[in-house]
Simulated assay, not measured.
Amino acid sequence: MKFALASLSLLLVACQPSPPPAVAPAAPAPPAAEAPSVKRAPGQENVDPLQVFRAFGTEPFWGVNVEGTRLTYTTPDDQAGVVMEGTRKTLADGVEISGQHDGKPFVLTVGSGTCSDGMSDNTYSLVATFRFGEIDYTGCGEAAKL
């Protein structure tokens, strides 16, 4: 009888599910690089729309976010972007921001005009050109979202 009870106890212990192995918590994923936002800060609702805006184009894809005289130039290969500081010049129907970054001259010109990005049915109220070094880009622009 003692042998039977001991055997039964061993069988019950053997049938118990073993606890799952301890798993180390996964390391948090690094934050994704994001291009700076082109939204107006609170209290900036009445600021000239060409103080905070974006210019962009396709073939090749490019973008420039503008805040005053600071430009952030982005491409699909560099979504974090390159930050540049320029000199602002008011034009009859827009603005030009020019300067130099890492020995390369840049000029962004944005003016009034109807523009299509060529990829969607969207139309924009600004026409943009951007020259960085020896590369010329053309595209559209829009004031920052409120």
Score class of each variant (00 low, 15 high):
Met1Phe: 11
Phe3Tyr: 14
Phe3Ile: 10
Phe3Asp: 12
Ala4Lys: 14
Ala4Phe: 09
Leu5Glu: 11
Ala6Tyr: 11
Ala6Glu: 05
Ala6Met: 05
Leu8Val: 14
Ser9Arg: 06
Ser9Met: 10
Leu10Phe: 09
Leu12Trp: 06
Val13Met: 15
Ala14Val: 08
Cys15Pro: 07
Pro17Gly: 05
Ser18His: 05
Ser18Val: 02
Pro19Tyr: 04
Val23Phe: 12
Ala24Met: 13
Ala24Leu: 11
Pro25Gln: 14
Pro25Tyr: 03
Ala27Gln: 15
Ala27Thr: 06
Pro28Phe: 04
Pro28His: 01
Ala29Gln: 09
Pro31Ser: 07
Ala33Leu: 11
Glu34Phe: 06
Glu34Met: 10
Glu34Val: 07
Ala35Cys: 09
Ser37Pro: 14
Lys39Gln: 13
Lys39Trp: 06
Arg40Tyr: 04
Gly43Gln: 02
Gly43Asp: 02
Gly43Thr: 02
Gly43Val: 01
Gln44Met: 14
Gln44Cys: 11
Val47Arg: 06
Asp48Ile: 01
Pro49Thr: 01
Pro49Ile: 00
Pro49Trp: 04
Pro49Arg: 02
Leu50Pro: 03
Gln51His: 10
Phe53Ile: 03
Phe53Asn: 01
Arg54Trp: 00
Glu59Val: 15
Glu59Asn: 10
Phe61Arg: 15
Gly63Asn: 01
Gly63Ala: 05
Val64Ala: 03
Val64Met: 00
Val66Leu: 01
Val66Met: 00
Gly68Phe: 11
Arg70Thr: 11
Leu71His: 03
Leu71Ile: 02
Leu71Glu: 02
Thr72Met: 05
Thr74Glu: 04
Thr74Phe: 04
Pro76Tyr: 05
Pro76Arg: 08
Pro76Gly: 07
Asp77Ala: 10
Asp77His: 07
Asp78Ser: 15
Asp78Met: 14
Asp78Leu: 09
Ala80Asn: 08
Gly81Tyr: 13
Val82Gly: 11
Val82Tyr: 08
Val83Gly: 15
Met84Tyr: 04
Glu85Cys: 09
Glu85Arg: 15
Gly86Cys: 01
Thr87Glu: 07
Arg88Pro: 05
Leu91His: 04
Leu91Ala: 14
Ala92Tyr: 12
Ala92Glu: 08
Gly94Leu: 03
Val95Leu: 11
Glu96Ala: 15
Glu96Thr: 10
Ser98Glu: 05
Gly99Trp: 08
Gly103Trp: 02
Lys104Ile: 11
Phe106Gly: 02
Val107Gln: 13
Leu108Asn: 01
Leu108Ser: 03
Thr109Lys: 13
Val110Thr: 04
Gly111Met: 05
Gly111Arg: 08
Ser112Phe: 15
Gly113Tyr: 03
Gly113Cys: 01
Thr114Ile: 06
Cys115Asn: 00
Ser116Val: 03
Asp117Leu: 05
Gly118Trp: 01
Gly118Arg: 02
Met119Cys: 10
Ser120Gly: 08
Ser120Thr: 13
Asp121Leu: 10
Asn122Cys: 09
Asn122Arg: 13
Asn122Ile: 10
Asn122Tyr: 06
Thr123Lys: 09
Thr123Tyr: 10
Tyr124Met: 00
Leu126Thr: 06
Ala128Val: 00
Ala128Gly: 03
Glu134Ile: 08
Glu134Leu: 14
Glu134Trp: 03
Asp136Ile: 03
Thr138Asp: 14
Cys140His: 02
Gly141Asn: 01
Gly141Trp: 01
Gly141Phe: 00
Glu142Tyr: 04
Glu142Arg: 06
Ala143Pro: 04
Ala144Phe: 00
Lys145Ser: 12
Lys145Ala: 12
Leu146Lys: 07
Leu146Ser: 13
